[in-house]
Nucleic acid binder design. Structure first.
Lengths: 340, 340
DNA sequence: TTGAAAGCGCTAACAC
DNA sequence: GTGTTAGCGCTTTCAA
């Protein structure tokens, strides 16, 4: 009493297996009569095509493997949404996997995808050594999201973190802030680009004398600690640009703890536009990355290769532009207003 | 120049295909000599077993399909963590999928799993009609997390929401609160059990005269609106038990907006112990569900069936007990203290 | 338009 | 221990 096969359907419909196969893939070259006979037989039997067998026979699987570096992070969920939407419109299916931030487990997940013979791989924020990524790219097309590596045929899509940092700084400057400090993200992903972007923007605004970077680590505690140090210094800033929303929340904590108010005394800008920043309770001005678009683009890139619209060792690189989301943690600096 | 097969490895190692197969599955009945010869040949060729072919030949796939109702919700990420840990220890691999809260897409995802012939299915918080779930359960073992249905052979694991609500109420009562209101979750998942649990606990504490349920909807805005109404009533509560953390955050907003302080004037308890509640900035007392354990248990249940330790139409049902996480939004009621 | 036959790459008896 | 031989359920020429 195992699952019915094409054979069973063919017998019941009184046709050959091959014809059933054509019907299942709805080929146009089947007479309406046999088509409906086959469909009826399949329905009566509760027939479900065996994807395993199909894949073995056809060499293509129309499945893409998507590795999400961290399934706890909503950032990757949105990349998935974009990837899925794009895949569906092209008739592909996504297989999801994660290594839970562990490179070894990520490697396993990629290996599993490869053993399942996915047609291509999309790796979102992988912790994987680049040699592993390059090796995978020798077997199937690979696109990388939110990570850059130098390897043949590995397409990448990233958001322009330097530009995003520039948006934050220019927003604060346009409100009248001059002493704008940056709580950085240490060695975290994107942290150095955001730090550089901050420095460049400050310089191009003629504010290089006010550049002040304090060490953070993308955590709430780290952000709070950094801002505490900042406030104890002789000459505290009027605005803080945090490397991500979580450390921005820490900044908020520290400012309040010091008896100051946001945005009246100090403005704060985060980065990533997470749900946290959108909370009414927090309502933080932040920088938004076009996450869905990043997912879409990654899928489009690998499918271009799978379907032969692109090929060769040249890696394509897409750099998307972030945008500013103004909420309630930024305002005109008080001291400036009073002196006006 | 397609991928090397077992045939190639066998030729190179000077043995038969079957022997290679045995080595790949590291069977004990292979001489060390041939084993290392095969391994060497495989390495030189860059051989990778074809899981598709393996599955077709062996009927078992050692893959479990896991459907996460909402990949944006960290709740499900933790269920996944538990499921994954359990699966790995049993030598199974998880395939992840989601329908993004859309029943039709969920159906597709389940269908895809079934076509890939996964050995079993774990459905976490599915929106699927129960008929679809029951149908799937006729093909492979199915376990349901955070949802109950009456169907043969569908095992379920849920957290005891009534008990959780009881914990919240008893915590507040033990601090001295008597007027404890509940912001409910409308028709959301678990909302009615939490409401019932609240009412039962209030009654059993002799506080039935103070039962007060205001309508919420599991959102921040809904929670804030409910609390605003509560505060405008003639006789506001000294404590609020919200049906989830998000509406608890809304409650916090509304309390502050009214010029009152948490927990000095009003205590607030949330539900779910999300990252939001853990934020230092929020630090909300809440009820925690043993999510990882729920995932583990679901996998254990289906594997019991897959491996023959359980069988038949009797559905097993696991009810796990939540626990209380005390943070900084609950305290002894001020008025009570002053009158003491 | 339909059917026959040869695989796809592997596992699983069964012999040797 | 190791090799031989059938399939697993489907796709894909190639004929008819």
């Amino acid at each position: 009493m195992s699952a019915p096969t094409m054979e069973d359907v063919a017998a019941r419909a009184g046709v050959s297996r091959a014809l059933v196969s054509l019907v299942m893939r709805n080929s146009p070259k089947v007479s309406p009569a046999s088509r409906s006979a086959v469909l009826a037989a399949a329905a009566e039997l509760g027939y479900r095509p065996n994807a395993i067998a199909r894949h073995l026979a056809s060499s293509r699987t129309t499945m893409l493997g998507v590795l999400l570096s961290d399934i706890h992070n909503p950032f990757f969920a949105e990349i998935y949404d974009g990837a899925d939407a794009e895949a569906v419109t092209h008739g592909y299916r996504l297989l999801l996997g994660t290594g839970s931030l562990n490179p070894v487990r990520e490697r396993d997940a990629v290996e599993a995808f490869l053993e399942l013979r996915v047609d291509a791989l999309v790796l979102a924020g992988p912790r994987l050594p680049s040699t592993v990524i390059a090796a995978a790219a020798r077997e199937v097309p690979v696109a990388l999201v939110s990570r850059l590596i130098r390897a043949d045929a590995v397409d990448t899509v990233v958001a322009d973190d330097r530009a995003g940092a520039g948006l934050a700084v220019r927003h604060l400057a346009s409100l009248g802030h001059r002493r704008i400090a940056h709580v950085d993200g240490g060695a975290g992903a994107g942290a150095s680009a955001r730090r550089t972007g901050y420095q460049k923007a400050m310089t191009s605004l003629g504010l290089q004398a006010h550049i002040q970077v304090v060490a953070g680590d993308f955590t709430e505690v780290g952000g709070a600690g950094a801002v505490r140090r900042l406030l104890q210094s002789g000459d505290p800033p009027t605005a803080i640009f945090a490397a991500n929303d979580l450390s921005g929340a820490g900044a908020l904590d520290a400012v309040e703890e010091a008896g100051l108010r946001v945005p009246d005394d100090i403005s704060v800008v985060g980065y990533d536009n997470t749900a946290l920043a959108a909370l009414h309770h927090v309502s933080m001005t932040t920088i938004n990355q076009p996450r869905e678009e990043m997912g879409r683009l990654a899928v489009r890139m690998v499918l271009d290769r799978v379907e032969g619209r692109a090929s060769g060792p040249t890696a394509r690189r897409a750099v998307l532009t972030p945008d500013l989301v103004v909420r309630r943690t930024t305002a005109v600096p008080r001291r400036q207003v009073e002196s006006a």
